[in-house]
């Protein structure tokens, strides 16, 4: 890496260094692709899990509609499940990241995870899981409550 010039303040130098590694070396692109793939795989897995669960409980959702519930009542159930999945996933990920800090320190790397990043990841995970629930939302919107009379 280039040596720090004496007339460049420390924060400016840090910013330039980050820009260099992220924009000029391909490391940034790799990181973005990794994050994108992580989100994509996460959405697919959560969507598939929620959809399977919805199909397994289709009769119960039909019962909710038959007793007067609307799609909104069922969306609330699915939304709650998606949010639980997001919070549980976030908790596991955050704990792992937290546990990695001393390990990284042993190889002279400082893992800095600002609070804002934690908050952003949590909000992002909830948003992604709710998007993943959309396929299930579409399915339950088409449930015919008359299925409760089928044996």
């Amino acid at each position: 890496m280039t040596r720090q010039r004496k007339d460049c303040p420390r924060p400016e130098w840090a910013k330039r260094s980050r820009s260099y590694w992220i924009e000029s070396t391909g490391l940034g692109l790799n990181m973005y692709i990794t994050v994108f793939l992580g989100c994509l795989v996460g959405i697919v897995v959560v969507a598939q899990t929620l959809y399977t669960s919805t199909m397994e409980h289709i009769r119960e959702f039909g019962t909710v509609k038959a007793i007067g519930g609307g799609n909104r009542d069922i969306y609330l159930i699915l939304g709650k499940q998606a949010t639980i999945a997001a919070v549980a996933g976030f908790a596991v990920g955050a704990l792992q990241a937290f546990a990695l800090r001393p390990v990284m320190a042993k190889i002279d790397l400082k893992l800095i995870i600002p609070t804002e990043l934690y908050a952003m990841v949590l909000v992002g995970a909830i948003a992604l899981c709710l998007s993943a629930a959309m396929i299930s939302f579409r399915k339950v919107a088409s449930i015919d409550p008359a299925l409760v009379f089928r044996t």
Binding site: E60, T63, A66, I67, G68, V148, F149
Partner: peptide
């Protein structure tokens, strides 16, 4: 919601 209560064969 307002006027009906259901009992089903399969309990549901």
């Amino acid at each position: 919601k307002r006027s009906l209560g259901f009992v089903f064969q399969q309990f549901n």
